[in-house]
Design a protein around this nucleic acid. Structure first.
Lengths: 156, 156
DNA sequence: ACCTTTTTGCGACTCAATTGCATCTGCGAC
DNA sequence: GTCGCAGATGCAATTGAGTCGCAAAAAGGT
């Protein structure tokens, strides 16, 4: 069962406190919103959700979202509509560190799925892409994103 | 050896003629520009390149670029700066058609490399990502993009 | 409760991309 | 060759995501 926004507030506060940074009301609200969502949200999605209960400035939402990315709680996904979407990190979505020309992506490479029908983007934590990618000589890898488009289970 | 813009014009005209659509001067110019580039170009890159010889409206560049994508000659890549970049398709970059839950990406999945230093994006045609991705039940795949970030051979 | 540092809110701004509309042009028909 | 018109272009105005500067507000240690 999916818990709603309000019920996620304590968890959001705890997570924020664990960072050692300031626990502000907008940060709690944004994080609780992300916690209550199973798909990636744009800054506007987040702002609209919060606006049902509090007033919040769109710029603050942008800044909190960026800050969450900076401290490693969330990550951003480039959408096909040139809008950033945000989603919480999980253990399974740690950054991939490559070695040299022959890159062997161990596991935990980052995979996203975007539904062409409903437009929602999901983070495929359980997906373990085993990729054997041979880059041209002299190329070094620091990060890998796998983006899959298609239709989700709801939209078939 | 990399051929320059002017020398690519006949090839551009031939490719356009093959589509059966109108062969206009802006289309030839845009396509010749893409043909003369080894990396992905933004609409502004293209417009600036063409502007050295002809005058062209930015909106026309947008429209021609979109049209090239529509007829299957080029494809667009979402950059981290929310700017679209365009690159010609090659045989090796055909769309991937998935089957069902257990997706087995044969080959020719689309891979791009973006250099964190010089910012250029290359299409990795020679890369044959062998991926074995297991999607959640009910998800169907129509398209796959692999985006790799790091440093290119020039920028080490 | 006080003080310092960090965040927030607000307004103005940037810039890629889009839209509406009038004009022009590629190209098939004659 | 030139005529006609569907389709393409140019221009001006608009949209909308994201950013910046700055003054006011709030977090958290003392």
């Amino acid at each position: 069962m999916k818990l709603a926004y309000l019920e996620k507030i304590p968890q959001a506060q705890a997570t924020l406190r664990a960072t050692g940074e300031r626990v502000t009301e907008p940060r709690v609200a944004v994080l609780a919103t992300l916690l209550s969502s199973d798909h990636a949200m744009s800054h506007l999605d987040v702002a609209a959700m919060i606006a049902k209960r509090h007033t919040i400035d769109r710029v603050t939402v942008y800044r909190v979202l960026d800050w969450l990315v900076g401290v490693g709680i969330a990550h951003r996904i480039a959408g096909d509509d040139r809008v950033w979407r945000f989603m919480l990190n999980t253990q399974a979505s740690a950054p991939v560190t490559g070695k040299n020309t022959a890159l062997h992506i161990q596991s935990h490479a980052h995979a996203h799925f975007t539904c062409n029908t409903c437009g929602q983007t999901f983070c495929l934590d359980k997906v373990q892409p085993k990729m054997n990618v041979k880059l041209p000589t002299g190329f070094r890898t620091t990060e890998v994103d796998l983006k899959i488009r298609g239709q989700c289970a709801e939209c078939k």
